[in-house]
């Protein structure tokens, strides 16, 4: 069979969700580690160093295109799944006790994903888009002061609340998504399942928590 046919199939589509999901997870690790440098409270020095490396290194910038593509595929594929799955049950149950057999967040990946998408738009509008606009195509070193921007943006309690909300959505999305990616790719083994489950839960808690701590710390003035 041709490889494009795979991704039209149900199993192929979920594998694609899994692959892109895991890829986005690795992105989260990097994003989170670099941003966590602000907790050094060194006036953003370490953060800026790493940040500008990420913003200017040609290999990283190339990877960035892959990242955007990863997001797009994950989103489009997700929407497609959501639509097909909705169509697979044209008449709903009058009475459905879904909580008896599954968790609400596993059933709400589309909703959580949409929330994350909205958050992503807000978030990139704050930092990534203005920065890349200023850099343009050629002036890569002409970056905006992301650290300063952070201190400024997170003075607004509404924005902080939105960020916290985004991180909470991310937590639930990851709590199902992490394990689910392994299952979709067929990486399921009685010996390792509990380890994957454990790692997934830990990851879903730690990463969003660190992210959420950033706006909170700045708002509360812990980081200057």
């Amino acid at each position: 069979m041709t490889n494009s046919a795979i991704f039209k199939s149900s199993v192929g589509k979920k594998a694609l969700m899994g692959v892109t999901g895991l890829f986005l997870i690795t992105f989260l690790v990097i994003h989170c580690s670099i941003n966590a440098m602000i907790f050094l409270n060194d006036g953003g020095e370490t953060f800026k160093k790493w940040g500008s490396f990420m913003g200017t290194n040609p290999i990283i910038r190339t990877m960035e295109i892959v990242l955007v593509a990863g997001f797009l595929v994950h989103i489009v594929d997700g929407l497609l799944l959501w639509k097909q799955n909705r169509d697979a049950r044209p008449v709903k149950y009058a009475m459905n006790s879904a909580n008896a057999n599954s968790t609400w967040y596993s059933r709400s990946m589309g909703l959580l994903g949409t929330l994350l998408l909205i958050f992503l738009v807000i978030h990139t509008a704050h930092f990534w888009i203005p920065n890349r606009m200023q850099q343009g195509l050629t002036h890569w070193h002409n970056e905006i002061d992301l650290y300063g921007k952070m201190l400024e943006v997170f003075q607004n309690p509404v924005i902080v609340a939105i960020y916290i909300f985004g991180c909470v959505s991310l937590f639930w999305h990851l709590l199902h998504g992490f394990k689910s990616a392994f299952q979709s790719l067929g990486l399921n083994h009685t010996k390792y399942n509990s380890a994957i489950g454990w790692a997934g839960t830990a990851f879903s808690i730690v990463v969003p928590a660190i992210f959420a701590l950033m706006p909170v710390s700045i708002y509360l003035g812990w980081i200057k």
Binding site: K14, L81, Q84, N85, D87, A88, A98, S102, R107, S180
Partner: peptide, 24 residues
């Protein structure tokens, strides 16, 4: 390949690893 393709053709939905099937 053949069984998955037939399953898709019949109009069943896509698995998102919810696990309700296993539970029920």
């Amino acid at each position: 390949i053949n069984m998955v393709n037939q399953m898709d053709e019949e109009g069943f939905g896509n698995c998102t690893n919810i696990g309700a099937c296993e539970a029920e």
